[in-house]
Write a protein that binds this DNA or RNA. Structure first.
Lengths: 164, 164
DNA sequence: TTATACCTGACGAAATTGGTCGGGTTTTGG
DNA sequence: CCAAAACCCGACCAATTTCGTCAGGTATAA
């Protein structure tokens, strides 16, 4: 899990998409204009997002992008790991042939920290970010109640956290 | 708060230092050998760590580095922000002249997320990492400690915090 | 006084970032 | 049918960052 401006662009674009998609597909051109991200860069990012099944595309005039899942089921971690390839960080490349006797210290160290980071970012959904962004706080969760089916653990937890 | 391999090297080195410093200062050469990080790169990193008052140096033979504070009082966030200059991310550079009417969306969005990230990494101390690393599996962290009050304040506050 | 070890700055190759360009392909609507 | 809208794709590029080398310093214990 790497955290760079690239991931930020992606999350920013996805938040924009979340807030507009109520009326059909959203074009990259519109996102580009609103968020001041170059169209070509957005195309690269959304190519990855599509391949990661986070968005779906509609081609032709009137087309654009839709979220592939409800906002409550897409996490910040999903987005970031879709566009930022994971940094390997353990120079032994996952093997256990590190010269040290008991696996190089970095192994478990980063595995643990990575996991923690991922846990956290996985607990923040697009819905959380959007609702907070709109100043409405937790209201969005109520909105979803009937239509969403059984609420997932991460989303619900995140909602509590934001509410707290 | 950026998260790259550079920060990982720094944390790795600091963990190594933590585990060895019981018997006097630790030389960079020793860390270099154990963690397979080049000596010159370590010197750059420790220059920053020293300037951030996270370590203190002892020159001359028998010298090396010591932690400037007990392991429980140095957090992962301290280390990372010492070596990774913060990513600015809001292309308006903190100004409010973003072309959008109501401050570009990225502003409050990243201020909030940044704050959350920082809260988490600030809740993990070197002592936590080391004890977990040594297989003790001490119930890792008491994280989620602070985040109650400030998080939900209207966006302006978070922005201020980051700007400060 | 010498070896140890920190300290500093300049320099560089490689990767990443953020973006451009020039082409496609699919689909709507006139 | 045909043109325009929009996604799709790969090559390419400047700037920056990453990771590291090199060549010197300076402080200090032995």
């Amino acid at each position: 899990m790497r955290l760079t401006t690239k991931g930020r662009f992606a999350v920013t674009a996805m938040v924009d998409l979340s807030m507009r998609q109520t009326r059909g597909p959203v074009t990259l051109a519109a996102i580009s204009e609103r968020q001041h991200i170059s169209l070509s860069y957005l195309e690269q990012l959304f190519g990855k997002l599509r391949r990661a099944s986070l968005v779906s595309s509609v081609r032709g005039p009137g087309g654009g992008y839709n979220l592939a899942r409800p906002t409550g089921e897409i996490t910040v971690a999903d987005i970031i790991s879709a566009v930022d390839e994971p940094m390997d960080a353990t120079q032994c490349g996952g093997k256990e042939n590190c010269i040290d006797d008991r696996r190089c210290v970095t192994h478990d160290l980063w595995a643990t920290l990575n996991e923690k980071m991922n846990d956290y970012l996985s607990s923040v959904s697009l819905a959380d970010v959007v609702s907070h962004q709109q100043g409405k706080q937790v209201q969005v969760i109520k909105h979803f109640r009937g239509t969403e089916g059984p609420a997932e653990a991460p989303a619900g937890k995140a909602a509590e956290k934001v509410a707290a």
